[in-house]
């Protein structure tokens, strides 16, 4: 659900980075935080354990500019990837306007990607939503590693809806903004359609 403050002429969108543990969700936000102009971003909040694993969520507010007189604000969240933090994932997913599913391209993580995607679908279904309706893009991360699954196989396993997808090496910044732009475009276009409906 987007929230439009007509008085302040602000469009607020909530984007959630989802995916298995250690796939690079937080790394995406850290790169965005490092690259964006100081005036365009708030604090990057990470509620993490001592070992830097996301405990509750990471949160980064971005104000990238104005579209047709509306300040466009994106609230970026990551969910904790570890299996046992499902309650946090459900909470953060509520009222999301768009999802980035970050997949770990390594062979040994394929099963975890599939489980996480199924978990995403189950949690969306629980709140009456689905990937058929919610704007979603897929990021195939860690493309620089040697033991990676070919994109065609990842597509077959993880992207039956043929959502927009991006290859990335998030710790080097490759593909990070392309992914964000991809999901932002879907969300804003969906907002146009929903308002017209």
């Amino acid at each position: 659900m987007s929230f439009i403050n007509y008085a302040a002429r602000e469009i607020n969108c909530k984007l959630v980075y989802y995916g298995p543990g250690l796939c690079g969700k937080t790394t995406n936000l850290q790169h965005i935080y490092a690259r964006v102009d100081p005036g365009a971003k708030g604090k990057l909040i990470s509620l993490a354990t001592e070992t830097e694993r996301t405990l509750f969520f990471d949160f980064l507010p971005l104000e990238l500019g104005t579209i047709r007189g509306f300040k466009t604000r994106f609230h970026l969240y990551t969910v904790p990837g570890q299996v046992f933090y499902d309650a946090s994932r459900k909470l953060i997913l509520r009222r999301a306007d768009g999802v980035v599913f970050v997949a770990d391209s390594q062979f040994e993580r394929l099963e975890s990607n599939i489980e996480s995607l199924e978990n995403l679908e189950a949690n969306l279904a629980e709140q009456g939503d689905s990937l058929d309706r919610l704007p979603c893009v897929i990021q195939y991360n860690k493309r620089d590693l040697p033991n990676i699954v070919p994109v065609e196989s990842l597509q077959a396993a993880l992207n039956p809806r043929n959502a927009p997808w991006f290859e990335a090496v998030a710790n080097q910044g490759t593909g990070v903004f392309e992914t964000l732009k991809g999901v932002a475009k879907l969300v804003l276009n969906e907002m146009k359609k929903a308002t017209l409906a």
Binding site: I4, I67, R68, F70, T72, K181, K185, M191, K192
Partner: peptide
């Protein structure tokens, strides 16, 4: 709102990420 949002183009969105 519909009137205003309908004017948003892909180029407008691209401009948000012009860095």
């Amino acid at each position: 709102l519909q009137e205003e949002l309908s004017r948003i183009t892909d180029a407008d969105i691209d401009n948000l990420f012009a860095y």
